[in-house]
Design a protein around this nucleic acid. Structure first.
Lengths: 177, 177
DNA sequence: TGTACATCAGTGAACGCGCGTTCACTGATGTAC
DNA sequence: TGTACATCAGTGAACGCGCGTTCACTGATGTAC
């Protein structure tokens, strides 16, 4: 059942994207390779034709999640701090979905995360207009950290009103900065 | 080898505290019951004389972590956003250490977390002086979410200077609010 | 207060299970002639 | 262009391992008389 090079590359990509979603939805440790392979429409035996280890997939899946986030869109904070984002971690921000797990990942994964974070910081800083670049970058650092913390807290809390209040007040707060 | 009631209660407490530390240090899923029992100076077989399940221990250990945090001390933000706190998750804030894992825990655990978060919000709000209570509470919500996000980001990032900058800028930012 | 007995905290071995990983095998693909 | 063969993506079963959980057993404790 050998596949063409193009099919092989597509399969590999499918596995990475399935992993990126599953990790954000259920956590890295809680997601088994068999789950991911099944989500990609395969059996788990074939995994090692594409990757050396689960750790390698983790690094690539996280990089893919961060890449998919892309540049910071207009009205970024409003969308980031929405109930929709809170309720759909699988399609949302990696830092919010996996923050504390990410902090314990190996250096490959954390370096990918660092690069993507810096890229997001720069993209956001550019939108701060006519302040000096250092100040803009500092603001962006603060805003991104604060936003990911707010989404995480809004997901932990069991009271829906409190959860909504966390997002609403953080939105207002960042609008005034 | 039956133990006295007092000894039994002390043992139970020791298990909970060992779990609270181990969970924050290594993550909840990554920490085995045998690890915890060994840290408490016991063999793993005795676990079920004290708890019904790992989930029950998770809830109690998280509650203990949150309780140990206690009231919001003076110069709270400066200490919370320190390199020392960043480098010692085992003795630090539960939300920062386990945020994304906590968001996937059962309702018992998340309710304990919610109650403790609200308590911390109120304690911090009181320190905002002469603004009206609602505004103070909103500020406290924002500050606590932002701080936990900043510590988490500072732990993910591999560049020490960037990590320090995240904490420094968040400290400055919250000082001006 | 002293004795006989039921309780139960803790031990250490065992359980089933799911995990990451490996492997023999299949058969379509790509390559060499 | 056609044929023969090596490659290798994917399957499905198996591996060892560590996990949460259970259990028979031990012996000090607390209780009933």
């Amino acid at each position: 059942m050998k596949k063409s090079k193009r099919e092989t590359a597509e399969t590999r990509r499918r596995i990475v994207l399935a992993a990126a979603e599953a990790f954000r939805r259920n956590g890295i440790q809680a997601t088994g390779l068999a789950d991911i392979m099944a989500a990609a429409g395969l059996t788990h035996g074939g995994f090692y034709r594409h990757f050396d280890s689960k750790d390698q997939l983790i690094a690539e899946a996280c990089a893919a999640s961060l890449e998919a986030a892309g540049d910071v869109p207009r009205a970024f904070a409003a969308h980031y701090l929405s109930a929709e984002h809170r309720d759909n971690p699988a399609e949302g921000c990696l830092f919010a979905a996996l923050g504390s797990e990410l902090a314990r990942c190996d250096s490959h994964t954390r370096e990918a995360a660092t690069a993507a974070f810096l890229k997001a910081v720069d993209a956001l800083a550019e939108r701060y207009g006519r302040v000096n670049p250092e100040t803009a970058k500092a603001r962006a650092l603060v805003a991104l950290s604060a936003m990911s913390g707010a989404i995480t807290m809004s997901r932990i809390v069991t009271d829906p009103k409190l959860s909504a209040a966390i997002l609403r007040h953080m939105r207002k707060h960042l609008a005034t900065v």
